[in-house]
Design a protein around this nucleic acid. Structure first.
Lengths: 218, 218
DNA sequence: TGTAATGTTTACCAATCGGTCAAATTATCG
DNA sequence: CGATAATTTGACCGATTGGTAAACATTACA
């Protein structure tokens, strides 16, 4: 008698690990393009090279697949922000944060699109994570940025909107990849576009956040 | 005998205009949230308050609805960029471009999400528009920005990535609205968030694009 | 007013959807 | 090996999908 998801043995089989990995990989392919509603189990099954009932042996529902995917990807996705160091040099911290986010857009575009799809649909599956852990993390880092501004290390600015703008500019290269490539044209849409973007964004944010010398200040 | 879409009379009836408007309005509601694949004619029909066959009397297929919607919205969406004036003052041109894009994110979030959805899915329905009219428009404005930089009116920068960064930062407030609200929390997620964003972005882009005084230059 | 064109609805279709089931196959291990 | 548990599959289910046909209702206009 087959009991789904290894209820008996507790420990996960080698096959289980492999197949679940294989399924989530395919699910990422599909969900990241079509979103939850627009994706079908059959599509995922075909990409995974498995039969539909076989997928449903490892994940009981389409929602369970999506859920597992989100859970697995969420941590990775927030890692760069966690690395944001209060004790570091503001300029280099911001610079390397932009770099890392841009690298993620380049190396994990599907993960970026998965979240983008989720956001567009009103985050029906992750709203709790947004209001909980994400908000707390951003609040913490916003404090860091605010303290930098207070110490005169960077210009005074709204730390939340600074974080938003770094998120949006970097993720843009994953989420709107088609548009970026179309506009840049064949000559400039090569792999070098990420380097160009990095140079521009670093310049923009570093210079844009430099403390303004106020003539009439002491 | 009913012939869809007024093939006989050539001229469009009052009813046709009203109903087509009504349908596209509902279609925008639905498509902008769930994307093309994730949306159903039944959903649109329900939102429009009409029966499904009645929708299909005005638009022969789901694709036709989506197509009509995209066509209608595309022009509006690019209007702010068209208004970008080569003869104007760079600082105020960029400032007002950001303002206008931010106002559109506030006032037409569905239109923004419609395009975002389309981009995420690889632009299967608008790739031609991207590579044609959009690229030409951006090329033209990029030239303007480049000439400003050459004239020493703004810092030297990649004009394409500048445009991308303005697009992404402003549209973020429409496309990722849920996330923005969740992170800002109840206190700061009110209507004022657009003003806060405008202030921050103007500061960022204006200061970030100021010409750097190079000490060792003549 | 009459009538032809336009607009709307009910009933329906084949295809696809998420998901189940039982039978068949394969892996594990004493 | 044998047997038991784990895995895989084909056949199938009711609901939903995009779309059609034809009867019915309404409008426009001579």
């Amino acid at each position: 008698m087959a009991i789904p998801r290894a209820a008996k043995t507790q420990r996960r089989t080698r096959i289980q690990e492999e197949k679940e990995e294989q399924i989530l990989e395919a699910a990422l392919d599909v969900f990241s393009v079509s979103g939850f509603r627009g994706s079908t189990i059959d599509q995922i099954a075909e990409v995974a090279g498995m039969s539909k009932p076989n997928l449903l042996y490892y994940f009981r529902t389409k929602e369970a697949m999506h859920r597992a995917l989100i859970d697995r990807v969420l941590d990775t996705w927030l890692e760069p922000l966690r690395a944001f160091d209060a004790d570091g040099n503001p300029e280099s911290e911001i610079r390397s944060y932009i770099r890392r986010k841009l690298e993620m857009a380049r190396d994990f575009p599907r993960e970026s699109r998965l979240f983008a799809n989720e956001m567009l649909q009103g985050a029906p599956h992750v709203e709790d994570e947004l209001k909980g852990p994400l908000k707390e993390l951003v609040d913490e880092k916003a404090d860091v940025i605010r303290s930098w501004a207070k110490a005169g290390k960077i210009a005074k600015c709204d730390p939340y909107h600074l974080i938003f703008s770094i998120w949006s500019t970097t993720q843009h290269y994953a989420d709107f990849d088609v548009q970026v490539r179309a506009v840049l044209g064949q000559e400039h849409a090569g792999p070098g576009r990420f380097e160009d973007a990095a140079r521009f964004l670093e310049q923009l944010f570093i210079d844009g956040l430099k403390v303004k010398s106020v003539p009439n200040a002491s």
